[in-house]
C-alpha cells in the first residue's frame, strides 16, 4: 500500500533498476541497460528471457504494463519489451522497468511466452501476435484479439505495411 508522503519518481526508478539488476545478476543472466525518458530497458538474450522474467517477478515486478514491440526493418529485428511495474512492493511501486529481447525479423518470428510468469501479459501477447506476427511459444490461447483474421494476416503494425496520408491537394472533386 502506498502511503503519504509522495516520493520522488526518479529515486524510485533508480532503486527499481538496482533491484532488477541484482535480481538478474544473481541468476547469472547477462544483460545490457538502455535508458529512456522515465524508464529503463534491460535487454537480455533470448535464452535468458524466461529466467529473467522469473527473477524479476520474484524481485517484486508483479505485472506487465505494456508489451511494446517496435519494428526495425533496416536492422532486421523486432525489439520486444515487457514494461513492468509493481503494485504490491511499496519501495518500487510505479517505477517502469522494461525487460526486452531482440527478435530477428523473419516470416515467422517466435519468442517464448511469458504468460505463465505474468498473467497480465496474456492479452497483450495475443495483440502482438496479430499485429506483428510474432508467435509466442507456450501461450495458452494464441488467437487474434482485436482484428478479424483477414486483417490480421496483413500484420498491420509492421513497417512494411504502409498507410498513406493524403496530401493537401488530393481528393478535391473536379467540379469543386
Amino acid at each position: 500500500m502506498l502511503q503519504a508522503p509522495s516520493r520522488d519518481y526518479s529515486s524510485v526508478l533508480g532503486l527499481a533498476l538496482e533491484k532488477a539488476k541484482n535480481a538478474l545478476s544473481s541468476k547469472g543472466i547477462v544483460f545490457s541497460v538502455e535508458e529512456g525518458k522515465g524508464f529503463y530497458d534491460i535487454i537480455v538474450e533470448r535464452e535468458y528471457l524466461v529466467a529473467g522474467a522469473t527473477a524479476l517477478k520474484e524481485a517484486g515486478f508483479d505485472h506487465v504494463v505494456s508489451l511494446t514491440v517496435t519494428d526495425y526493418p533496416k536492422e532486421k529485428k523486432f525489439r520486444l519489451v515487457y514494461h513492468l511495474t509493481s503494485y504490491l512492493d511499496y519501495e518500487i511501486a510505479g517505477a517502469i522497468i522494461g525487460l526486452g529481447v531482440e527478435v530477428p525479423r523473419s516470416d515467422r518470428p517466435s519468442v517464448p511466452s511469458l504468460t505463465q510468469v505474468w498473467r497480465s501479459a496474456e492479452f497483450q501477447e495475443r495483440e502482438v501476435y496479430e499485429f506483428f506476427g510474432i508467435e509466442f511459444e507456450g501461450h495458452p490461447d494464441l488467437r487474434p484479439l482485436l482484428l478479424t483474421p483477414p486483417v490480421a494476416e496483413l500484420r498491420p503494425l509492421r513497417k512494411d505495411f504502409v498507410v498513406r496520408e493524403e496530401n493537401i491537394y488530393e481528393g478535391v472533386p473536379k467540379s469543386g
Partner: peptide, 14 residues
C-alpha cells in the same frame, strides 16, 4: 464524420 467519409480514420485499414 467517421460514418461519412472516415473522418480522422479515412486512411485506416480497418
Amino acid at each position: 464524420a467517421c460514418a461519412l467519409d472516415g473522418g480522422l480514420f479515412y486512411n485506416s485499414y480497418n
